[in-house]
Amino acid sequence: MTSILGQILWLYMYGVLLAIVSISIYGVVVRPHILKKIIALTILADTANTFMIFIGYRLGATVPPILTTLNPSPSDIATFVSSAVDPVPQCLVITAIVINMAVTALLIFLSIQAYRLYRTLHVKELSRLRG
């Protein structure tokens, strides 16, 4: 079923996501500015979400996991089960997106407050300000 082109595209997508993960981990760990760390963290979270949706794909799936009728017959349900994509990763991702937004907002608020108090967001200089 999987053609060679399909497998190449799969590996390409996988490689792109891994590359973005590595860049964002570099941003979180190495960059000294807190704002850049936050940006890298959101990229990391979004990549993880894309990755989850990516592995939830099903070959030959044609419909989203939504029944189009409120009165389905057994054959409707059988067609639905045989043609819908996996709903579990989508459900996990929608939870992760909202938490990611809320946590990003909290981080931004805390870093604005830190900037007001210390006039810097550089982690080396922030760590020097003790007490």
Partner: peptide, 8 residues
């Protein structure tokens, strides 16, 4: 009819 919402 929405599998994602019924899971969520």
């Amino acid at each position: 009819p929405e599998a994602v919402t019924s899971m969520l």
